[in-house]
Every structure is written in structure tokens, then in C-alpha cells.
Write a protein that binds this DNA or RNA. Structure first.
Lengths: 182, 182
DNA sequence: GCCTTTGTCTAGCAGTGTTATATAACGATG
DNA sequence: CATCGTTATATAACACTGCTAGACAAAGGC
């Protein structure tokens, strides 16, 4: 066996650079504009180099998405653990980084959720919603998550009245915190 | 002026054929597999012919989506006008035609919703949800729609526990029909 | 018969993701 | 110091995409 005859240029560092450039480019011009050629040009290298960091364009997008879940989890944890504060933080996050959110949820990806091999950032983001309620319940958290996700995506595609963001959030909040009559 | 020296092959008919073939292909192999070449091959014509029916691939996908909204509106109207029945019909529709639903909501499209030029099928589908409630309210309907949409998409991408579909629907239903304490 | 109009096809452009092959840079060894 | 072997990078190509200009053919009116 022999050691590295040529120093590896810190793969992790370059992964981060590629992820960052992809995010920037996507947020500016949309995901279709994020091509391997343009990305390589932006970084001053050639396409094949990108394939030493990510096996495919899809793998790169998945990495960006995972990155996004990490940030989302942090954004949720950063505010007080009340349903309304956390839900508002969720909607704010989605509105602030629409393309990133798109990569996390709308673009095809191999990231499962309620499975055995669920990546850790996804679990952390989910618990950020679940633990916002006084009596955490899995089903309630799933419904809250779904409501937030629905509001975020429909809002982003211009299918809800922009002037009623607050009213909808209020209604969801009231519904979820009302004592169940069940 | 002069009349048609060659009979037009019923453009509307062919539009429907193309839409149908695109839907079938998408449902079978996913949207990326729906290429103009493959679609033309499936229909026994060449690519340029498709462009006489639709200006672009995007326009074709939009047409498929609009078609889907039409079917969704019909599926909702077909069941009794109760919140639970309509919401279940919505989720069933999304689960039965995942790629069609994807075209309607996840793929980029120019179909607005809460705008002046909102296509009529979209309005009909939305009212199918709104009018399911005893006292129709726009905000309530938007929230119900968002919850359904969130459940449908998160479920489709395997991010909710498959065994708890009914429990989540129950919870949403209870929340939305409970008298507001506000 | 011809001519005009129009639909269709062939062939091509520019761009994509991805990869096989060649080149150049570098550490370890003699 | 020179050579060797390894490995990151670059060049060039493949197969594919959406889309389109120009050539061909079919079908009515005269």
C-alpha cells in the first residue's frame, strides 16, 4: 500500500463550496439554471471535478436539501417553544429561501422521513415542530407540519390570498391549541 | 382569402390525445420520462407535430394540470357536501394519481390561483372544498386546502407514517368543524 | 391538368448530465 | 537528484434533451 502521492484538496471543504454555489445560483435563477457546467464555471473548475464531490446532480441537490433541513431545525430551535412562534418561524423560513425549500420538499429526492434510515437533520427539524406543543403528540405534530407545508407551498405559488397570511396562521393556531372535544 | 386546402386534423382531438399520452407516460415512468420524442413515438408521429398542438413542453404540462383540476373538481362534487367526505375524496384523488397531482402542484407552472385570470377549473376545485362546510368561509377553506395539500404531498414522499392516514384526517376534521372559541 | 395552401417529416442547433481517456502535478523511493 | 507510481484535473466525447428552419407531400379550388 502507499500513501497519497498527491494531497487531497479537502473533499469536505469543496463539498461545502459546491453546495453553497448551487444554493446561490438556485436562489438567483431557479433550479433549472443550476447546471453542472455553469456551476463548475462559477467555481473555476471543470465539470468532472464536481463528480468527485457528488456522484450526480441529484446527489448534489439532495445535499443542498439536507443542508436546508439543518438550517430549518436551527431556525425553529432559535425561537421560543410555543406553537405560534415556531409555526411563524417555519413560514418565515420557507418564504425567505423559496428555492432551498423547493429542494427540500418539491424536487424529487431520495430523502425519506418516517423510515428507519431517516437522516438526522430531518428528525431534528420535525421535533422542532412537535416539541413546540405543551403535550407533544406525533399525530398532532404531523398535522401541524402538513398545514405549515401546505400554507408555505400554496402561498409560494400564488394560490392563496397574500393579504391573509396572518389570518390563516391565526386560524391554524386556534385549531391546534383548542382542547379536543374527542 | 382562401379556405383550408387541406383538412385540419381536429386540433382539439389531438390535444386530448397528447394530454392523455403524457398523463399515461408520466404516471408510468415519471415526468422526466415524458420527453417530446418519446411522446411523439408513442403517438406514431414526429416531434414537430406536437408543437402544433402545444407551444412548448411546459404548455403541455400546464394543460395536463388543468385537466387534473377539472377531474379533481368533479371528484369532489361527486361526493356528499360534508367536510370529511370531501377531504377524504381529495386525499384519495392525490393518492390515486400521484404524477397528475405533481403536475398540478409541484412542477413549475404558470397557473395562478388567487388572481384575476385564474382558470375556471381551479376555481371549481377550490369551491369544492369551500362549499363542503356548513358556513363557507374563504380563510377556513384556504386552511383546509393547505392542510389537505400538505398531507397529500408529505404522504406521497413518504414523510408521514403510512399507518396513520385516518388518524390525521380525523384530527383535521375535528379541528375544522369545532366551533371557534375566538 | 395545374397551383396554392397547409400539414408533416428530415435534419439540425444549442444545450444538458455523465464518462472514458489523456495529461500534469506531486510524494515517496532509489 | 532523478525516477516511479499514484491521483487530481482537464479534454473530448456520447447520448440525450427541447425546439426549429427548410424540404417534401398531400389535398382542395380553378
Amino acid at each position: 500500500m502507499s500513501m497519497s502521492p498527491r494531497p487531497a484538496p479537502d473533499l469536505d471543504l469543496r463539498r461545502d463550496q459546491v453546495i453553497g454555489a448551487a444554493r446561490e445560483l438556485a436562489e438567483a435563477d431557479g433550479w433549472p439554471a443550476v447546471t453542472m457546467r455553469r456551476l463548475a464555471g462559477e467555481l473555476g473548475v471543470t465539470q468532472p471535478v464536481l463528480y468527485s464531490a457528488f456522484a450526480s446532480r441529484q446527489a448534489l441537490i439532495d445535499a443542498v436539501a439536507l443542508n436546508g433541513f439543518d438550517e430549518l431545525a436551527a431556525a425553529l430551535k432559535a425561537v421560543e417553544a410555543s406553537p405560534k412562534a415556531r409555526m411563524r418561524a417555519y413560514l418565515d423560513f420557507a418564504a425567505a429561501h423559496p428555492r432551498l425549500y423547493e429542494a427540500m420538499f418539491s424536487l424529487p429526492s431520495g430523502l425519506a422521513f418516517a423510515a428507519d434510515d431517516t437522516p438526522e437533520p430531518l428528525l431534528r427539524a420535525f421535533s422542532g415542530i412537535r416539541d413546540a406543543f405543551p403535550e407533544p403528540d406525533e399525530t398532532q405534530a404531523e398535522v401541524a407540519w402538513a398545514a405549515m407545508h401546505g400554507l408555505a407551498t400554496l402561498q409560494a405559488s400564488g394560490r392563496l390570498r397574500p393579504s391573509h397570511v396572518e389570518a390563516r396562521l391565526d386560524l391554524v393556531h386556534r385549531m391546534l391549541t383548542q382542547p379536543a372535544t374527542h
